[in-house]
Amino acid sequence: MDNKKSTPDIKPPHELLSGIQSWRPYQSTQPCCEPILHIHAKDLSIRYHQRMALQQVNLAINQGCITALVGPSGCGKTSFLMSINRLTDLIPGCQVSGQLELKGTNILAASANLLQLRRKVGMIFQKPAVFPFSIKRNLEIPLREHGWKDKTTLSSRIESALSQVGLWNEVKDRLDQPAQALSGGQQQRLCLARALVLSPEILLLDEPCSALDPLSSGIVEDLIMDLRGQLTIVIVTHNLAQARRMADHVAVFWSIKGKGQLLEYGPAQSIFDSPQHELTAAYISGARG
């Protein structure tokens, strides 16, 4: 962890990668996307047993932005995402090294409070993973566990979370029915509500729309766009059109000789319009990946 180079912390990470021009701090035109550093990965590497899945990633994610992680399968995007809430701990044989700071606190430190961390960092998976209980219970379990016991608070938080994802009017009469009875899109929105009910600061999305039909996918996408500015959102996606529609920043990951690496990072527009790396250009044009 202490193999830090003498360069200052905010040193553009892309100078470390050869063949890439120096990094320009992104100045957003949208007021919600302030250039305040929220998630900062420094020399982050992830290993599965002895296999290097992600090598020395340096990435600074701004507060309130939507940052899309794109790239072919197996290049370490999801591993990177899961290291932000340390869900990597649950994967046998997975080791994370380097530093990962949330607002300046290294969450990879042994002293990090995992439960608090995960409360502040919500996560949505590819397949909607609703718990096999009632809709209400799905939201109640995390709330109760994090200390909200009062009945009226519980129900008001549940209502506001469900409203936020546009589910309230659809399900308010059947809160006690099993969540699996909902459609795929509704289940994914319930998962979103379940993450939002804890008022997180960061939302991690692992291909949240890829298991949904186009219509539900559009609804979920709009919801995520609505959250822009309120939360820092990191989304893994295979759908480049989606990344182009949603993201403020795009990070392109690539697997080089079996090791995942960060290829290019910058404002969405510049990545899509004038990619710096030839692999990125090929990937975006559809020639590679």
Binding site: L87, L90, L115, R118, F125, F131, P142, H146, C191
Partner: peptide, 9 residues
């Protein structure tokens, strides 16, 4: 994973 991601012990 979802349970852990919600910060449940």
């Amino acid at each position: 994973l979802s349970a852990a991601a919600l910060g449940l012990s």
